[in-house]
Amino acid sequence: MNFSWMAWTLPTVAFFGTIFLLFVGMSIWEYVSPGGNPRFGILRFETTRGDRLFVSLLGSAFIHLAWLGLVGPNLWWALAISVVYAIGVFRFV
């Protein structure tokens, strides 16, 4: 099957591969510990671990966009901030 029409590049394969691995990891986590671990965090509404992953990914996207718009194209710092943010979301939200 030819996927050249999708214009794949190595960085975008790595990007989607990472997201796919995150989904696989979350599925395994759910299989081992079913129920999604719902809880009320600092935002005062109920979140499951799937919600927390979604908030982490969406927030990370905006952190990267803000970095691109306000600072510049070197995104390693934005990635580091996103990882810290995601840990914070999984710990406190």
Binding site: W5, A7, T9, P11, T12, F16, G69, P73, L75
Partner: peptide
């Protein structure tokens, strides 16, 4: 959506030929 993401980091003039542009379009 994945195709759009792939397009967003490249430049093309047609004929399925692409050139890497990185985050230039986002900036």
């Amino acid at each position: 959506l994945m195709t759009v993401v792939n397009y967003s980091v490249q430049d093309t003039f047609g004929n399925n030929v692409f050139f890497w542009a990185g985050t230039e379009w986002y900036e």
